[in-house]
Nucleic acid binder design. Structure first.
Lengths: 175, 175
DNA sequence: ACTATTTATTTAACATGTTAACTATATGGC
DNA sequence: GCCATATAGTTAACATGTTAAATAAATAGT
């Protein structure tokens, strides 16, 4: 069943070489890079009993001020049902507050509390240390360039032209 | 839709400015970029009833030939227990086969089947189309540079120097 | 050879993500 | 104002990811 591939000595591959190397496949490359980075940040967050998702929500709220749930979901790449639970937890812990939007009774505005900000401040030193180590080893300038390129890539997201008009922005996913 | 944060006057922030903008936070930037990219690939995979994780496993197996579960977990950024289930599904669908390693009875070698390769070939055209659109809009050279930088970042993963010696490589995560 | 320790994988229990259906409010047409 | 339709958010059912413990096979020490 193995008709002796094509080139020289592929490890054990068969046919189907219609694909680039997985390390050059953008989604996989982004995932592996992120995992490498998170491997360093995760212990810091775990040490303060914050999940990655909770962390993103707090960071975004601290950055942008009160936002409604849909906006947060978009900025944090979290799906609404997940966000509902995360918000419930964060509110129960007193790190954020929920308030009905006056004027539009459907919207719920979320605001980070002083306790939430205090948590950010408490984590900041360790987080910064991890970041600085990374920066030192990767190169400050190179890191800045990478961030520029990632931002630009993320901004491509708006929709290509005319594929399926539904579900444009966020998502979440688990992998 | 995007509420335009950074530039002029902070909407309602309070204190705690010990953090960079979230768009310059590497883990978030990587996540948002990946979500933007996956928003385009996901419909393609969904159209062939393959999950992202299954897809990664098939791609890696097609690329590297038979591998044991631990290696796949590392390459695919999937945790072992998740992989167990994914492998069970893929094997049940006849896309891969499992065989005990002769010589090391603990290892299970996974091999992609012809049906698995056929699936890859079937998805390839659509996948390539998405990729080419992305490449055209982002810039071929720029994309190549980004992939180089991501690869380098992923390779930093080995362990910084002397933190916790346990759990070096993979992980998985859900966000 | 026999026990203790490591390594590879699976199972179990639980948390989280995901899709679809549901509730509540808002908006536009008449 | 009243209806149809759209939007914000939650709930429900299910799939998946995650941590810890269990199983099984290898290796190391004696």
């Amino acid at each position: 069943m193995i008709p002796a591939s094509d080139t020289a000595d592929p490890p054990a591959r068969r046919k189907s070489d219609g694909y680039r190397s997985t390390s050059r496949a953008l989604p996989i490359a982004l995932l592996r890079a992120r995992e490498a980075v998170m491997a360093r940040f995760r212990p810091v967050l775990a040490g303060h009993a914050v999940t990655e998702q909770q962390w993103r929500v707090l960071r975004v709220l601290a950055e942008s001020g009160p936002l409604d749930a849909t906006e947060i979901a978009g900025h944090c790449c979290i799906l609404m049902p997940s966000l509902t639970r995360i918000v419930r937890t964060l509110a129960a812990e007193g790190l954020i507050t929920r308030s009905r939007d006056t004027g539009d009774g459907r919207r719920h505005l979320l605001t980070i509390t002083d306790a939430g900000l205090a948590l950010l401040d408490r984590v900041a030193p360790e987080s910064r240390a991890v970041y600085e180590d990374l920066e030192k080893r990767y190169g400050t300038e190179r890191l800045g360039m990478l961030l520029d390129m990632l931002e630009e890539l993320a901004d491509l997201g708006g929709r290509t032209d005319a594929q399926d008009p539904g579900r444009s922005g966020q998502s979440g996913r688990s992998d």
